[in-house]
Nucleic acid binder design. Structure first.
Lengths: 367, 367
DNA sequence: CGGAGTTCGTAAGGTGTACTAACAAATGTG
DNA sequence: CACATTTGTTAGTACACCTTACGAACTCCG
């Protein structure tokens, strides 16, 4: 694969520092000697790296571990999970923006919401984001590590929102403008990409997963081989308007017929169920089958271990996920893909927590 | 993303060495000063790295460039593209195995073939591979950099063929056994993965592509963000038995109906055309549409820039690729995926050349 | 035609990173 | 209580890349 760029000793050091933090983050409290065994770096190097992290206030010494057996008792250290805080923002709501102050573990400490006027113009929407972030920074009671934002639409890796129809944004350098405004690290990414990061970091750690968000629209975030998939046009995961099946289907807002989003969007399903409550199970199963049809080629092509759904559990939880799983299995090769799971995420506020992971990853190298 | 492992200074050096070779490989002849500007490393470091590569016989000084302008004329250096040779092997044929000796540019210097008895048992098939490699090594007239093998079936990253039904192989540690046999670097990978590497290295350099091989079977190799996609079960690209469409379809060898492979495999298309030559165009267009249906979700999910087809050009070249492209565009979101191309590869012997790239990549860090 | 300026490649010495070797501190074991 | 074991630190070494400086070879211009 293409070599990316030169590596200087300094960068190697920061890589090893990230390795230490990553290990501490996921394994929890441990001694320097444990870290040395875990990472393969020598105790001397670990001591040096840890001293640096302690000086930065990222790591702290907990105390001495009482241990049976010979030898000097180890000093237990850990990430100082409450020493810094992260601002997470979710712009995917239709009527309001959600925000939260989180600790480094991704736990929500304070929540804020700003409602968005109907048909808000781009500047109003931006002003609402700024107001939300300002409130959150005021609510934070520890140094803030950075601001993570999950935005709908297509977002460039530099945090420019190329197009977000719901917010009437196009080519908005949101990350840059928020950075200028608040003078701290800012990361802006697509909402579904943020969500899959949360699942990857806080959920069962598979290295190949797809997370499908089903709400008013449908969008996915993908991780392949432990790497987020971005795409050449930064539009990876935009599967909402893939035509699903060869038998026509409902009319979609985009003008086509049979788009996945037209089949399975939440308001559509709720309307169908309200019109005929008795057929609820059948309606949900039909929608689940359509999801299975759409994702089967993706699961096979990427050899995904797991597909995670995020959306209203009362819609997606029962007949929907069962029908989707069954359809996925009947439409892919037996013996290889028969153990692929479709599950609902256990995470609440998955975009907010994903936005926090973005900051963790960029600032500490942890995810 | 998960940090992979510790980085020692020695590894940083080998990374930078690969960067130098990579740059030289793709840009061709240039001076040390050019390399310094291109890579960002200083002239001093470049001189050091280049000296090491020259000592290893990988790089050579070509001569002094005649140049207009002031300053000392540069000494032009380049990869010694004919100083070493690579053995490439393609096991995807049904009646015979193909092999070749290639130079570092991927040009074929000598070809060999061994025919495979019908219903060969696993040991006979393995013996045929050994014989082929032995002949190729004898034919090579420069030091051999390594042996690359593209095998059908599911291949683990360590070169163990987990299952290759056509060859009756299962859990065959082919890479290890060939390494024991020939005492030189050996790389065994899936044939479609090898093919996409060839396309990536020698074709137009997009960083997100899928290559679909259509012959007796259908298989794909994927590169996302410049990284080969492997998959949790090492089965990425196994899209042959994805059911395509919701209107039944032809019976597949696997027992299902409507698999992509059942729709578009070459013998099937040839049989249909022979039965009714007048409908040739219609038959090919129908098959192309099925391919478009199957890959549309994959293109959208990964945001691929290009889908490359490898197979018989007389089948895939005309109506097939046109219908596939049109279907892909009508089934994905307009304005985002409308410029995705489906093209036939310009490469001949793409698996052989991909096998050579595997060796280049492993030994020199070049791809 | 000779000096100034430019570019290339190399040499010498400095900085940063991780390593090995060795040691003090704190504990369990015979 | 001597000894082994484990932890964390100190001292010195190896390595990679850097900055600075210089000789070589060429062009340009007075």
């Amino acid at each position: 694969m293409r070599t990316t760029g030169k590596v200087l000793p300094e960068q190697a050091r920061s890589h090893n520092r990230s390795l230490v933090l990553q290990t501490l983050y996921h394994r929890g409290e441990m001694s320097r000697a444990d870290l040395s065994r875990e990472t393969g770096l020598t105790r001397v190097t670990i001591s040096d790296l840890v001293a640096e992290c302690i000086a930065d206030g990222i790591v702290r010494e907990i105390g001495v571990r009482e241990v049976a057996g010979p030898g000097k008792p180890p000093i237990v250290i850990d990430i100082d999970r409450d020493g810094h805080q992260i601002i997470g923002v979710d712009l995917s709501g239709t009527a309001a923006f959600q925000g939260a102050v989180l600790n480094l573990d991704g736990h929500m400490l304070h929540r804020r919401t700003v409602s968005l006027p109907v048909d808000a113009d781009p500047d109003e929407a931006y002003a609402a984001v700024v107001e939300l972030v300002r409130e959150l920074i005021a609510a934070a009671d520890r140094p803030v590590l950075g601001i993570g934002v999950g935005s709908p639409g297509i977002v460039r890796p530099d945090g420019t929102v190329l197009s977000a129809p719901n917010l009437s944004w196009s080519d908005l350098p949101l990350e840059q403008r928020l950075h200028d405004e608040f003078a701290m690290p800012v990361l802006v990414r697509n909402d579904a990409n943020a969500a899959v990061l949360a699942e990857y970091t806080f959920g069962a750690a598979r290295s190949d997963i797809m997370l499908v968000r089903i709400g008013r629209g449908v969008g996915a975030g993908l991780i392949a081989g432990g790497q987020a998939v971005i795409g050449g046009r930064f539009a990876a995961g935009e599967i909402g308007h893939v035509v699903t099946g060869t038998d026509d289907g409902p009319l979609c807002a985009c003008g086509n017929r049979g788009c996945l989003e037209a089949w399975v969007n939440a308001p559509h399903l709720l309307a169908l169920i309200e019109a005929d409550p008795a057929r609820r199970g059948e309606i949900l199963a039909q929608a689940g089958r359509r999801l299975g049809i759409a994702i089967a080629p993706i699961v096979a092509a990427l050899d995904l271990s797991q597909v995670v759904l995020a959306g209203a559990p009362e819609l997606l939880g029962g007949e929907f996920v069962e029908a989707a799983t069954k359809t996925l299995h009947t439409r892919t090769l037996d013996g290889v893909f028969e153990d692929v799971e479709i599950v609902l995420t256990a995470q609440r506020d998955i975009v907010l927590r994903g936005a926090a992971v973005m900051v963790l990853s960029a600032q500490l190298g942890v995810s």
